[in-house]
Design a protein around this nucleic acid. Sequence first.
DNA 1: ATGCTTAGTGTTTAAATTACACTTTATTAA
DNA 2: TTAATAAAGTGTAATTTAAACACTAAGCAT
Lengths: 254, 254
Amino acid sequence: MNTTANLVEQKIVLNNSVSVDCVIFGFDFMQLNVLLVDRVMYDEKSGKELFNDLTLTGNHIFEEEDLDEAAARILFDLTGLKNIYLEQFYTFGSPTRINRENDKAWLAANGRDPNHRIITIGYYSLLDTDKVTLEWKGRNVRWVPVSDVTELAFDHMEILQKALQALRKKLTREPIGFELLPPKFTLSQMQRLYEVILGVTLDKRNFRKKVSRMKYLVPLDEKQKGVAHKPARLYVFDRDIYETTKTELLDFAI
Amino acid sequence: MNTTANLVEQKIVLNNSVSVDCVIFGFDFMQLNVLLVDRVMYDEKSGKELFNDLTLTGNHIFEEEDLDEAAARILFDLTGLKNIYLEQFYTFGSPTRINRENDKAWLAANGRDPNHRIITIGYYSLLDTDKVTLEWKGRNVRWVPVSDVTELAFDHMEILQKALQALRKKLTREPIGFELLPPKFTLSQMQRLYEVILGVTLDKRNFRKKVSRMKYLVPLDEKQKGVAHKPARLYVFDRDIYETTKTELLDFAI
DNA sequence: ATGCTTAGTGTTTAAATTACACTTTATTAA
DNA sequence: TTAATAAAGTGTAATTTAAACACTAAGCAT
C-alpha cells in the first residue's frame, strides 16, 4: 500500500519563524541602487566594533496583517513612504540559511536562537531614489549601487540577486520601470533605466521608435530645466491608458 | 524623529504555522489536469457524511528540510514520483485565508486551531498524467481537468488560479511544456498543449515553422503507433542542446 | 560668438509574423 | 481490395517588426 518516502526520522516543524524582507530598489538616473542598513555589533566590554555589515531590511509579521501589508509596513518604517510598488518574488527557507559566525553572533546578541530556521518571504519595491529622506528613524540607512554590492549579511546577497533577476524578468514584460522614475521624465532617462537594469546598451533611435508605440507614454508640452544642454521633452506614464490597452504589451528583451 | 506607522496596537507573531502546498498539473494530450484529493468529513455519532470537498495537497516542513525538498516530498507522497519539475510560485499568508465553515470544522476535527493563520508556500509541478499511479497510499486522489474545477476547500481555488497564471507566464518564455509530455511526442500533441494551457488556437503551419527553429527539439526516425490515421513523427526535447543554446529562447505569446 | 553636451530625427535591409488549402499516409470498415 | 476516414505534413506572399547606422538642433557656459 505504501513505500515510505523518508525512512530517516524527521521532525515535522509545526511552527516556524517567519519574516518578510524588502529589497528596496531606487534609480537616480545613473545607477540602480538598493537601500541597505548597517548592522554594527560592538564588544560588550570594550565597546570596540566587532563587525559592521550591510543587510536588507526585514521584520516579523503582525497578527492581523497580510503579507503584503507587512512588506508595506517595513517599507514605511524604513522610508516613511506609502503606496509604493511592491512585488513578492520568492520565499527563502533553507535550514542552513544562517551559517556565518557574524550572523549567529548577531542573532544571539538580539535574543534569538541562531540555530532556528527563519523562513523569509522576499518582496522587492521600486521607487525614485530622491523620494527617500534618509536617516529616517535615526537608522543608518544608505543607497548603494547594486553593482557595488558584493557582500551582505545572512543570505541577503542571494536574496538581492533573486530580486534583481525577478525585476529584470518583469521589466522586460511589463511597464514597471516608471515606478523607478519621477512622475515626469525624459526618454533618455527611461532608456538609461532599461540599459542599467537589463545590462544592455540600446540604440537611441530604435528605442524611441519602440516606445513611441506605447500609447500610455504621454509627451508633455514641457521641457527639462536647469541642464547645461538642449533640454529634453518630458513624458508621463498614464496608468489609465495602460490599464485599458493592456493587450499591446511591449517587450524590452534584447 | 519618527512618525509611527501603526498607531493600532498589533502583536508581532514570532512563530507561524507554515506549510508547502503543491499544485500538480498533468497533461493527457487533451486537457490540462490538476491532481486533487478528497476531503471527506463524517459526523462523529451518525457516521453520516457531512461534506466532501476537493483540496490541493500540502504538508508541514521537516526540521532539516529545504522548502524545495518539502515540496518534492509532498509530491512523492502523493504520486510516488521523484525528480519531477517543481516551481515555487507564490506564498499565501492572509490572516483571513481560512474563513469557511467546512474548513474550520475540518481543521478543528484534525486537532488544529482554525483561527491560527497558516502561511503556505505554493509550488506547482508538471508531469505527464500517465506517470501517476493513482490510489497511491489508498488516498482518494484524482485528476480533474482544470477547466472543470470551480470550487476547492480553503483558498485552494485562489492558489490554483495563481499557479495557472504563473505556469502560463513561464510557458510563454521557457520550454517547460516538455515536462508535461512523455519523452517522445508529436508536434500536434505539443501544439495542443500550448493551445490548452494558453487558451489560444494556433495555426499548424506557423507553429511548426516556429518550433523548427528550436534546435533542442529533435526529430526521431520513429513514428507514432496504434493510431487510426497517418502516424506522426516523434520528437524529443534535448535538454543538453537547450542548456548550451539558451540564448535563442522562443516566445509563444500570441 | 564659440564650444560643449545632450536631444532629436529616417532609411534601408533582414527577420519574423500572419493568413491561408491541399496532398499524403496509415487504419478501418465495407 | 477498395473506399472512407482522420490526422499529418507542407509553401508562399504580404505585412510587421527589428537592427544597423550619423547627422543636425537647442540651450547653456565660457
